[in-house]
Computed example of a mutant assay.
Amino acid sequence: MKKIIYSIFLLGFLFTVSCKKEATLTTLQPVSFSSAIKASATSATLTSKNDSSAVLTLSWPAVVYPVKASVTYTLQADIPADTVGNNAWANATSVVVGNDVLSKSYKGADLNTLATSLGLTPGTAGNLAFRVLAYQDRYAYSKAVTVSVNPHQLIATYPLLYIPGDYQGWSPPSAPTLAALKFNNIYDGYINIPAGGTYYFKYTNAKDWNHINYGDGGNGMLSTDGAAAGLKVPDAGYYELSANLNTNTWTYTKTTWSILGDATPGGWSTDTQLTYDAAKQVWTVTANMLSTGSFKFRANNAWNIDFGLDANGKLAYSDSPASIYGSNPAITNITVPVSGNYTITLDLHDPSNYNYTLHKN
């Protein structure tokens, strides 16, 4: 009888076990580019004559993810030597092309700026490597394509105002400048005024005192009377200055700089402060950054003056008190290509070329 009961129990146990479903192992389906990106040309010789013409178009196939949703594509450019090794592509320049956008064209001037910012020498052909990152719930990376680029020397042609003052010996030839990037008589720029002086300066429209000088007209106004008193800021510091020659007005804003965003140590709630290097005329910080987030540069821990990227990946104002810019919602955030420790540099000393660098340590 015991044997019968044991047999019935064993059969019931085996039947129960056999009826249980096997656990299903869930894995992410692999995604990838079906081919490398394509370049419309293998080489580009850049001159002032093709600054406004399309000289290079890069295109790539769509990456198909399991979920039918938009895919964000980012184009990266770097010199080939920086695309190998443990820090491959860490110093690349990245441009978010957009959702489901499968090509990016460069005009001559934009490609020239990219090439020189990555270290290519004007007048000498050098190689640039390009690849594309696709992202939905995870990244896919294309194979790279290499293009030979021969950049030319850029000569600033923007209208300038010079800022001689007590802080630099009242010398117009060696003075910092404001630039009118939109050729609309509205100028913008930055100067560092150290402690210990009078904090007076003027604007001049030439590298001398023999042309138009702009002094204090009272109540934020500019005077073209050469005998007018100088313009003045309250104390030492790093100032954004503007001049509107349509209305003969000017503004100043004392600034410190930081980064803010979910790519930074403080997220979107706490600014990570930059430190000013007066000798190099740049702001820097070393911080652990995340490639899954983004950030912007901003002044005074507020959104009154801040920088992101324009459509060509160039540093540009999102907001500025100078009416030359105002608020520009088309500006995108900045990203790092891979997570890690970076030295980030913000360079505002040349108003014709505000720029930044990301160096992975």
Rank of each mutant, 00 (worst) to 15 (best):
K360I: 14
T270E: 02
G220F: 03
A195Q: 07
T249S: 12
T116I: 15
N205S: 10
N246F: 00
P173M: 01
S34C: 02
A330V: 06
K314S: 09
A228I: 04
F295L: 04
N288E: 07
D78C: 04
N150I: 00
K107I: 13
A129N: 08
A62Q: 14
L118N: 14
Y167I: 04
L161P: 02
K202W: 11
H211Q: 01
T224E: 11
S294F: 01
D51S: 10
L58R: 08
V95T: 15
T335A: 02
P66Q: 11
A278W: 06
N205P: 04
A90C: 04
Y139H: 06
G237C: 00
E22Y: 11
A88P: 10
S291M: 02
Y238P: 03
L181A: 09
F183H: 14
L46V: 10
G267C: 03
P351V: 12
D216I: 03
W283E: 07
G108R: 09
Y203Q: 09
S105A: 15
T157Y: 03
Y190M: 00
D350Q: 11
S117V: 01
T335W: 03
D262F: 11
S223R: 14
P80D: 00
K296S: 14
W303Q: 11
A229W: 08
S174P: 00
A134Y: 00
N50C: 04
S318G: 15
G85A: 05
L28Y: 04
Y354S: 06
T74K: 13
L231T: 07
P61R: 13
V67N: 15
I5A: 15
G326H: 01
A156L: 10
L358V: 05
K314C: 02
A144T: 05
K2N: 13
A299M: 06
T27H: 00
E22R: 12
V95H: 01
V96Y: 12
T113I: 14
L56Q: 14
N288R: 04
A299F: 07
M221I: 05
F297P: 07
P173Q: 01
Q281G: 05
T272K: 02
N127K: 15
A23Y: 05
S59H: 08
D100S: 15
A109F: 09
T72M: 08
S242M: 04
L260F: 05
T272H: 05
A129R: 10
W89Y: 12
N246Y: 01
Y354H: 14
G126W: 15
T26A: 13
P122A: 11
L290S: 09
K3Q: 10
K49W: 01
L128N: 09
T272W: 02
K314W: 08
Y73V: 09
I305W: 03
L245S: 11
T121R: 08
S352I: 05
K104C: 00
A195R: 03
L114W: 10
T345F: 01
Y325L: 02
G98E: 10
G215A: 03
M221D: 12
T83Q: 12
S18Y: 05
R138F: 04
V71L: 03
I155F: 02
T332L: 02
A129W: 01
G266P: 07
